[in-house]
Design a protein around this nucleic acid. Structure first.
Length: 829
DNA sequence: ACCATTCACATTTTT
DNA sequence: TGTGAATGGT
């Protein structure tokens, strides 16, 4: 009913581009004298002729070549820090200025919303408001949605289809598994979701799944389940993320007329981070690019780090054969890092085989050498890094210009603990995203039910959240009735509540709930969506549920809800908001003060810092053992690329660390320094000792005790526990492995980090997504707490002060155990 | 329907 | 070790 109403797209307002209004458009290029020509005139300096705009000034010859090669396929191999985004954005400005295409005739695809935002901003800076006329600048997925909404019926959907997130996906699959009586222990829904995702990434529909693979899940039922899942999605008028591409491809393949329309439309296609594209994205691009053939892909094979989620480095390696006659431009002049950093990184990445090969160079100074520091264990590693940070801080280096890049998030904990003790400001970037938090999804589920009453998954999610006595039994009845009567869940619930079939108590609550939804829905048109949301959260008892919750992160969750409501303001209406949120579910965090950044190497891609700390360079951790076990040589190469990405994030200082002992899953394990350490060029590296730690290696032949050519023994990657390194490490651990524990350990971290989102303006600046911010304010004058005081800590929850020394407290937390910290981290409870 | 205990699990993450 | 999910008891 309501759901089939086409959705307005809140992101793009109509513009004066005459071609954007009717979708059918003439093939003729814009006439000179149009907007583009005017823009060109603006971009052109008065004294220069030949249509060369000011925007070209300051580009190096290769960059300029990449910008000016407008015709035919172009591959830009852009090494780290070589001005890739600049080329991309300038190229678009160039096309517009020359009047080669209208803004709406350019398809510019990125991977993340953030990248799309940045690109839009930078283009805007060059060409002004013309950028507003670029409706086809966005992520693969958002553009996919756009196409599907226009032609939904052609792929068996109605235009108002909903987009399921991973959570919905899994719940749906669970139902299918249950219906098929498949043991969820042996065959978890999560696994099936991943498998299906994998197929979709490779552009495979249920019918195209290779027989062997389809049989791999649940004794041969994988393929059947996939088909059932797709059927269920269609019935719900829903798609998952993978479908956005897969269905777009199907749309284009099965409807030549539609494809032809897009061919006429897209005169220029640009793709960012091409090394991260998966097969589906590649197929999609190839379909669209077959029109004008003016496709320009920018990427860096050395920075392909998402193979595990379907990215095909091959796409970039094969570009030349996919698009014969392609112009290939290499950007090798690095503007970011000093010579030593570049040298070390280049030497490392040279150990990879499957690469196109680039040699970065900089004309800048060689700067400080990359340091490699060994620590006894991970605590000392954290201590050493903390000290270095404080030293830099004393020399007036901004904390925000330092980053700790870890391989896996479990490594973060050590640093957080240390920094809390030191009173060092830090922020964790990445981690669970805003929209993944339970409270946000719950809130959204309420809104989804209001906006589209047929959204069964959303209804199911919140029938009993907060607890209102509608448990499994009640839900099953609703389900049964819904199936029998062919009704959406909420309508089934309505009928049940009116009948005598339920226990009086349940019947009343259910009637209440349905009534509430009716009431809210009636208010949808009369109230601004943010006010409505507030009312809903209030009247449903959802806010109250968290207010009553005494756990450490309850406050954070309430804050998140507030932030959600606040972020709704900028949208036209509820529908517009929901449409946006299903694809762009991130929120810009404010800058949040000066703080050290802690994040994974993956989330560091694309960023840069003056100083980069790279801890945990040990075999097994980095390169990650599992990557090695599961992916073999390919896994190792991807890990190496990850290392390369890490080092090249640094502008002036890259500081690598490893620990000889590390506690993994509670057990102390001795560790062998990472083979990647050996792969850093010696001339660019300085080996230092961690203060007080005997570190590792030192004077032996081969810097860390084993030959420089461990890489040659490629066959033994899997488990190299018999290598000399391991044996020596084991001896070392026997000599002194214990005793290093001490200090504080028992800290329990909840997975969701409480966060405070500073107020932020919509899509301003390079606003970073900052999550789980935990910033210490400078501590007040005198001791603010006394022994015995009850205090509250954002991460550890409630506790009692055990001792006070100046502004340092020891607190016994109810849940997290005893911690030492600076008093500014806690507040009176 | 809710709580407590037990059990398996333990990279990387976007849309 | 330590957490989240699932199961079983009240």
């Amino acid at each position: 009913m309501t759901a089939s109403r086409p959705l307005a797209d809140p992101r793009h307002s109509p513009n004066d581009d005459p071609f954007d209004i009717p979708f059918d458009l003439p093939a003729a290029p814009p006439r000179p004298g149009g907007i583009a020509a005017r823009a060109a005139a603006l971009a052109r300096p008065d004294h220069a002729g030949q249509g060369r705009g000011v925007y070209l000034d300051g580009l190096n010859p290769e960059q300029r070549a990449a910008v000016e090669a407008t015709d035919g396929p172009v591959l830009v191999l852009a090494g780290a820090g070589t001005g890739k985004t600049r080329v991309l954005t300038t190229r678009i400005a160039h096309i517009l200025s020359l009047g080669l295409a209208w803004p709406s005739q350019i398809l510019a695809v990125t991977f993340t919303n953030k990248a799309a935002r940045e690109m839009k901003e930078r283009i805007g800076a060059m060409v002004g408001e013309q950028v507003e006329g670029m409706p086809w600048l966005g992520t693969f997925h958002s553009i996919g949605v756009r196409m599907l909404r226009r032609h939904a019926e052609l792929v068996g959907l109605r235009s108002g289809f909903t987009i399921l997130d991973t959570d919905d996906q899994i719940r749906l699959l669970k139902q299918l598994l249950q219906a098929d009586a498949i043991d969820e222990k042996r065959w978890p829904a999560r696994l099936l979701a991943n498998i299906i995702d994998g197929w979709k990434n490779r552009g495979l529909g249920p019918q195209q799944v290779p027989a062997g693979e389809g049989a791999a899940f649940a004794n041969g039922r994988g393929q059947k389940l996939y088909a059932a899942y797709q059927a269920r999605l269609k019935a719900l008028n829903a798609v998952d993320f993978g479908d956005l591409l897969l269905e777009s491809i199907r749309l284009l393949r099965e409807n030549p007329d539609v494809l032809a329309e897009y061919h006429r439309r897209f005169r220029y296609i640009l793709v960012d981070e091409y090394q991260d594209t998966n097969v589906a994205q590649y197929l999609w691009l190839r379909l669209l690019a077959a029109g004008s053939r003016n496709v320009c892909c920018v990427g860096d094979d050395d920075q392909s780090i998402y193979g595990w989620r379907g990215a095909e480095v091959d796409n970039i390696l094969r570009f030349d054969s996919d698009f014969p006659g392609a112009t290939v431009v290499r950007l090798e002049r690095n503007y970011r890092s000093t010579g030593h950093i570049l040298g070390a990184a280049a030497h490392l990445i040279a150990h990879n085989e499957g690469r196109l090969g680039k040699t970065l160079f900089s004309k800048g100074e060689s700067g400080e050498k990359v340091t490699v520091t060994g620590a006894w264990d991970s605590q000392e590693e954290a201590r050493a890094i903390g000290e270095e940070i404080e030293q830099l801080q004393r020399k007036d280096h901004a904390l925000g210009q330092m980053a700790i890049l870890v391989r896996a998030s479990f490594q973060m904990r050590e640093f957080e603990e240390r920094f809390v003790t030191l009173g060092l400001n830090y922020r964790v970037i990445g981690g669970p995203r805003f929209y993944e938090r339970a409270e946000i999804r719950d809130a959204l589920a309420y809104l989804r039910v209001i906006a589209s009453p047929t959204d069964d998954l959303a209804f199911e999610r919140i029938v009993n959240v907060p607890k209102r006595g509608l448990g499994d039994a009640a839900l099953r009845q609703i389900h049964d009735h819904a199936r029998a009567a062919q009704l959406p869940l909420i309508e089934a619930a309505r009928e049940l509540a009116a009948s005598e079939e339920l226990k009086p108590k349940v019947r009343l609550t259910l009637r209440d709930l349905v009534g509430s939804f009716d009431r809210w829905r009636a208010q949808m048109t009369s109230l601004p969506q943010n006010e409505l949301a507030e009312i809903v959260l209030d009247e449903s008892g959802y806010t109250e549920m968290w207010q009553k919750d005494r756990s450490a992160d309850a406050q954070g969750r309430l804050d998140n809800l507030k932030e959600l409501v606040r972020s709704m303001e900028t949208f036209e209406n509820l529908i517009g908001f929901l449409e946006h949120i299903s694809l762009v579910m991130d929120v810009d965090g404010g800058a949040g003060g000066d703080a050290v950044n802690i994040m994974t190497l993956h989330s560091a891609k694309g960023l840069e810092f003056d100083t980069v700390f790279l801890p945990g360079w040990e075999e097994g951790v980095f390169p990650n053992q599992r990557a090695l076990d599961e992916q073999g040589r390919a896994g190792l190469e991807e890990e190496r690329r990850l290392a390369y990405v890490g080092i090249t994030r640094a502008r002036r200082r890259a500081k690598v660390f490893f620990a000889s002992n590390r506690r993994i899953h509670g057990l102390w394990q001795s560790a062998v320094p990472s083979r990647f350490l050996d792969e850093l060029s010696e001339k660019d590296v300085e080996v230092t000792e961690s203060r007080g730690g005997q570190g590792w290696g030192g004077g032996q032949s081969g810097r860390y005790g084993y030959g420089p050519s461990r890489f040659d023994e490629a066959q033994t990657f899997g488990s190299s526990y018999s290598t000399p390194g391991w044996q020596r490490a084991q001896n070392a651990s026997r000599a002194g492995g214990a005793g290093a524990s001490g200090g504080f350990s028992g800290g329990s971290f909840t997975d969701s980090r409480p966060s405070r989102f500073a107020a932020s303006e919509k899509a301003r600046g390079g606003g970073r997504l900052i999550e789980g911010e935990l910033i210490a304010r400078s501590s007040g004058p005198a001791a603010r707490f006394a022994i015995g005081n009850r205090v509250f800590h954002q991460k550890f929850g409630y506790g009692e002060v055990v001792s006070v020394e100046g502004n340092k407290l020891t607190v016994q937390f109810d849940k997290a155990g005893e911690k030492k910290m600076v008093d500014s981290f806690v507040e009176a409870a």
